[in-house]
Design a protein around this nucleic acid. Structure first.
Lengths: 219, 219
DNA sequence: ACACTTGTGCGAACAAGGTCGCAAAATTTC
DNA sequence: GAAATTTTGCGACCTTGTTCGCACAAGTGT
């Protein structure tokens, strides 16, 4: 699916394909795959900032400028990785999700799955956040769209809970966004070395619990 | 105070000053002031990314490389502005703050003051966020420290409220962090054009209310 | 076979942040 | 006043993401 994603968004084919397929297109597809593999490897080895486009190009067997035939920017390579990682986290969550469990537990289970993925390469999350600070760039919106999908999943969970163990008049979308933003903020501290991986995990846990209970006193 | 901040953090004086002052230092001080003024103007005119270091240098009457005698990086110029803006928001808040008002209202009043400042140049906030995505850089930590001060103020407010209209066993620091992260996240959407300035304001309002009430049902 | 279209690659070049070594200016020390 | 020292400025240069024009390759239509 990751390959399909890249295909659909590739630069040279803004409109629907005129011809069914083509030797050229096949060659391009192989190149794209090589680029993606090289990028993934180098991101892991040197981090996003450490991975030079020239290095990526070299490993993919082409010049740096040729990469731009297949990708709009370096950030886009990141988005592709991020999308895959996210997908992986989702399926992992769905596998062990119990829709009848208390909402609080389902949320916790989701973050556990997501955290496991992010811990492997925290870089992705952080740089994705950076991408959203370039509002003119096309990638910023795409990252936000990706985030929206996570928010959507959280919304879904809360929606179920609203009929059971949550306040019936709850604005689930707003609540989902709040949870998401809190988690992002905490991870940023983690990335900056202000919290260990474990501390990050438990802080998110605590914050979600806090949000569930609310700040005001309960009788 | 902004000048003092810049003085203290300037590159060429890592250790305590050997001599009390110096004509040379006076000259440097004037240069720093010119750099800051030029940077502030150009940030306003062209935005952070649009303001070239060469342009800033030109307006300050020096070459681009000379700027680095006084500042460690372009991001540092931003931090200086951000600190000033933040300070301004704080004093504005303190002027109209009523410590006896309900906690919910005090928080709202704080965000109103802060929002007024940020709306003038949203760039600051967004780019500051970007700076935190370079964890190796010294500036990242400094931005987080700046954020911590805001969190501290929120904590203070909540601390007062805990003895009155909030849950007595509330973890005020965690709550303050949660509020801060939510606000940051919403502003990012604003910066990306996904929400108007007014929508940003009201969304933060709604989120804070949500956090106060909590997700779980109340009798 | 012929032009014609289109996808792919290349290397030079650009912009912009940042580094480096040298020279001038300002002060201290003798 | 001369020498040493420190601050400030300069311009050349590096790095890296990105753009551009050109050339080649792979098909298509006639």
């Amino acid at each position: 699916m990751s390959d399909a994603t890249l295909e659909n968004r590739a630069v040279p084919r803004p409109r629907a394909p005129l011809r069914p397929d083509d030797g050229r297109l096949a060659r391009g597809r192989r190149s794209r795959a090589r680029i993606r593999a090289a990028a993934r490897e180098l991101f892991r080895e040197c981090g996003f900032d450490g991975a030079t486009l020239r290095a990526i190009g070299a490993r993919a067997g082409m010049g740096a400028s040729s990469i731009y035939r297949h990708v709009q920017s370096k950030h886009e390579l990141l988005i592709l990785e991020l999308a895959d990682t996210q997908e992986e986290a989702w399926t992992r969550f769905r596998e062990q999700d119990d829709r009848d469990a208390p909402t609080r537990e389902r949320i916790a289970s989701f973050f556990a799955a997501q955290h496991e993925m992010l811990a492997r390469d925290l870089d992705l999350t952080v740089i994705a956040l950076r991408a959203t600070t370039y509002p003119e760039a096309r990638v910023a919106r795409r990252v936000l769209t990706l985030n929206d999908r996570t928010v959507g999943l959280l919304t879904e969970i809360l929606q179920v809970g609203r009929k059971r163990d949550l306040a019936p008049d709850l604005d689930v979308l707003a609540a989902a966004r709040a949870i998401f933003h809190i988690a992002s903020g905490v991870r940023l501290s983690w990335a900056n070395g202000l919290a260990s991986e474990e501390a990050c995990r438990s802080t998110i846990e605590a914050s979600v619990t806090l949000l569930f209970r609310g700040l005001e006193p309960r009788p």
